[in-house]
Amino acid sequence: MAVTKANLAEYLFEGLGLNKRDAKEIVEQFFEEIKNSLEEGKQVKLSGFGNFDLRNKNQRPGRNPKTGEEIPIKARRVVTFKPGQKLKIKVEHHAATKS
């Protein structure tokens, strides 16, 4: 089953003994602070997990796939995630146990 915010809060409640309201708030704030930092143009480095980096993309020609009309794709900034070594190894191993 997929991990969600509710699921993470439940985990903090059970594992740490935080009350449900605090657990829910902390999960909410955890993601909110990461978004804030990225919005301010600052990379986020979570050791043990990975880095959220920002990349500036130049404008490039695009096309409406339905009409074939040419529309430029504006310059924009995007978030990329670069998994850390620890996470990569953990996940890679999943493949080994599966195949």
């Binding site: 999960v27 996940v91 999943h94």
Partner: peptide, 23 residues
């Protein structure tokens, strides 16, 4: 709490589960 969250997310991925956080 931060340690638990990161560990829980890593574990989920390690077992092939997805993580879905709206927004």
């Amino acid at each position: 709490a931060v340690k638990y969250m990161i560990e829980h997310m890593s574990e989920a991925l390690a077992t092939g589960d997805r993580i879905e956080v709206r927004g």
